[in-house]
Nucleic acid binder design. Sequence first.
DNA 1: CTGAAAGCGCTTACAG
DNA 2: CTGAAAGCGCTTACAG
Lengths: 352, 352
Amino acid sequence: MTIGGTGRPTIRDIAAMAGVSAGTVSRAMNGQKGVGAQTRARIEQIIAEQGFQADSSARQLSTGRSRCIAVVFPLHASEVVMHPVYPALLGALGDAAEEAGYDIMLQTLSSPERADRLVERVRHRRLDGVVLPAAGPRDPLQRRLHQAGVPTVLIGHRASSPELAWVDCTHDLAARDLTRLMLDGGRRRLVLLNGPKRVSACRLRSAGFWAAVREAGDLVQSAEEVEVEFDAEAANAAAKPLLAGGQRPTAMLCGADIIAAGCLEAARSLDLSVPDEVAVSGFDDQSLATHTMPALTTVRMPLRDIGEHAARLLFALIDGESPRRRHVILPTEIVLRESTPPGLTVPEPAST
Amino acid sequence: MTIGGTGRPTIRDIAAMAGVSAGTVSRAMNGQKGVGAQTRARIEQIIAEQGFQADSSARQLSTGRSRCIAVVFPLHASEVVMHPVYPALLGALGDAAEEAGYDIMLQTLSSPERADRLVERVRHRRLDGVVLPAAGPRDPLQRRLHQAGVPTVLIGHRASSPELAWVDCTHDLAARDLTRLMLDGGRRRLVLLNGPKRVSACRLRSAGFWAAVREAGDLVQSAEEVEVEFDAEAANAAAKPLLAGGQRPTAMLCGADIIAAGCLEAARSLDLSVPDEVAVSGFDDQSLATHTMPALTTVRMPLRDIGEHAARLLFALIDGESPRRRHVILPTEIVLRESTPPGLTVPEPAST
DNA sequence: CTGAAAGCGCTTACAG
DNA sequence: CTGAAAGCGCTTACAG
């Protein structure tokens, strides 16, 4: 059965041209020992001339490795892509994969059966490993992947099981530092308008906020945490009553830029000036943070670094290595703009 | 050579259990004719019980089809993802692929050699087809793919070669309608602050703008087009001198929301009120359009539809069909907000 | 250092 | 309707 009329050369054709066996070509191609220098050179020549590339499915069938990883999200692809950080993560992972010669596949977990399919995929070695950029607590997939022995790395969730590899950043320290900055700026009544607690990052942000409050002791007149979805409308609705109250907060720390955007709108609708009457901060440093009025003080996560670390970790796992650092926490960066009191100074990263 | 200790069942195991040959299992699995109803039922039973799934590389090796498509961008993945429309497109394509049982691979064309690799990939049938969401004029890859007989669909570029399939939307009509609206709103001095002309969409927007200007005849006092990159800073810098001039424009139509954001900043820095003194519009309806001050009138592209159409077209091409409509143009939608004169009415889509 | 051969797990003419 | 066999294009012990 002949499939393509392309006449695409196979390893056997190359072997014939070089006057050697297919096995030798294979060994030469894969840089293995045990091929004479001369022979190797000749083979490489011919391969280059012919622009030959081994058929990946055949190689995969015999080696059991696909040189392909999946990035899996627990939502529809169209939702993923609307997320403030996933796209950037995907980009960083893509770059890293490309550099390492891996292909990268976008997987979606919109329905439960898809998780089965994913696991099957890996067991069938169509996939060498997976990264879960939207990992969270009590996510059954994590355990299944781990049990199936699938090389896996989590992003943004510090897994309960120490065996799972993950990379994350200092959401907690950033929130703590930001809270301190608000205090430095003379703000005494604080609100954390946080994103949903099912998101691990939001838990850490909460922890950081409360740590700072605790540390500041009597300095703090009031502190409160309110949870909303990542949505400007919802944030606006939640912020308005808080800001309209008698003892209105003088600083609103928001768990996301999009939440902060809603908060700014609430302030505007109440004719409160930002940052004079109420300071506002975000998280994520999305592009909108530069274009709000006033421009938003926020926290930038090292998404590119996170992606690169995650990729490297995964490739090491796939190669059967056991990397010494299976858990990495990368530093965030506070970006001071106009929505917070002027004259503040970001603490040294030594605070980390 | 035994690969995985998984003991994952093969088609032969299933055949043994069913007391038939592997060939019969294969035929049953793939829903082919010529398997007795009884046999088929028994086989399906066992397959279900065992949770058996055929190994995709083996299948691929013998059928020559991978059930995988690539979405290829001419930039680093990390850049793609920052783009106002690519992520949404990727999302829509991902959903459509998933539904059709295709995998979707993210391909990047950061270096020229990567194009070769891509073509090789398809010839090696690791990929069944490709979509180019960032197609533009004189892009050599298009021709190469076409010559290689690779099922391909372009997005956002109405290819010169009629053989290439593409899907696009009414950038031109939207720009024309928007320009007319500005005229309806009493604006007589118009500027199109367009994105770069290498982007096909921007050419169409330009065409629409000038068509409206031409049609309006003497009504228009002045009309000018200026080209900037998709960047708020650059737009700000370009807009400022225009707005500071004596005969300052009363409407600035921008080729992208991010350009409009820069333009709004320019207006603000000159203390010009929007929309009273100068109206501003964008393109894309990015999330930032809702959060600028004032909120931005813009054009929403049917990205989801575009993605779905592109996917369907591609799958048809892969299946060797020759779809009657190889070129589709989908309608855009003008979204009126606060940055344009109040009281306008969007023309009926009949204007299409 | 190199070749011949078996094997990876499917699919599909070809017989019957 | 079903089976036996060849083939997809590689890789890798096993000999030599």
